[in-house]
Amino acid sequence: MSSTAINSNQLQVAREVYKRITANVSKVMQGQAEATRTLMAALASGGHVLLEDFPGTGKTTLAKALARSLDATFKRVQFTPDLLPSDILGVSVYSQRDQQFHFHQGPVFTNVLLADEINRASPRTQSALLEAMGESQVSVDGERHFLSEFFFVIATENPVEFRGTYPLPEAQMDRFAMQFTLGYVQPSEEVAILTAQQHNHPLDALQPCATVSDVLTLKHAVESVRISDELKRYIVDLVAATRSANGVQLGASPRASLALMKAAQALALFDGQEFVTPEQIQELAVPVIAHRLVMQPQAKFSGVTARNVVEEVLKKVKVPA
């Protein structure tokens, strides 16, 4: 087992990586420690993230700050209704010189991909991301192209605008390990943001503090965090409870259980523990599970949200202690 092979020294190293990146990001993202922590949990557990928030709350900045902090390739795609799958994946172009087709890689061949306003693209383009996110590979013209080992998608969407948008299909939603919001910061912190950006954007001054291999170390370390059978059962109970909850048409899948376990392992690592505790599971239950639930229309009308359902489930299912 890899868990026994990895010693606590390696965990210590991985934790240092996490701390460096977090400290770097927080130089830009004042007052978003929680969001940064959640984002890092997704990164370390190998999942992708969907940020849903109002315009101007710093979604893009957070993604950029993370990308800048890593000594990794970063690409950004602004999703628009006329965006085509080939604009993301890449295209084969006929070369006059050697009279052959050459594959030109699209922006998806990167370490960190920021898919901005993902719900503005057509479902066809949205699903082009599907294979890339799920399998870490791209099939173009019947040929498979593998993505790099470290591939992290941060997608953003705007919850208030509906005109000219295509809500993400349920299958696509399930590919995202987490969905969370940033929310507005405290007034004092907002003042700090104004001060910081009075002359120039702090993002420009941000220096990389971790390499791709550091991130891979972090990911491996997360896999070695121990979790007891009882807590696995707790995760399964939580996810199963959403399937029979009131107002839910389609509950969360086992993929949700898996994502929740991995994310909790990452949090345990961040907290300096070698094993997962119930607190970490509870902390991430909402961002991991909520966006996967399909609500009944009546429930939507009566104001019940998926978030409420997960919170209710957390209250109902007995926590191991």
């Binding site: 009882e230 070698e274 094993f275």
Partner: peptide
């Protein structure tokens, strides 16, 4: 207690 309960080791 947590280690006793939740650490598989």
């Amino acid at each position: 207690h947590y280690q006793y309960r939740f650490d598989p080791n």
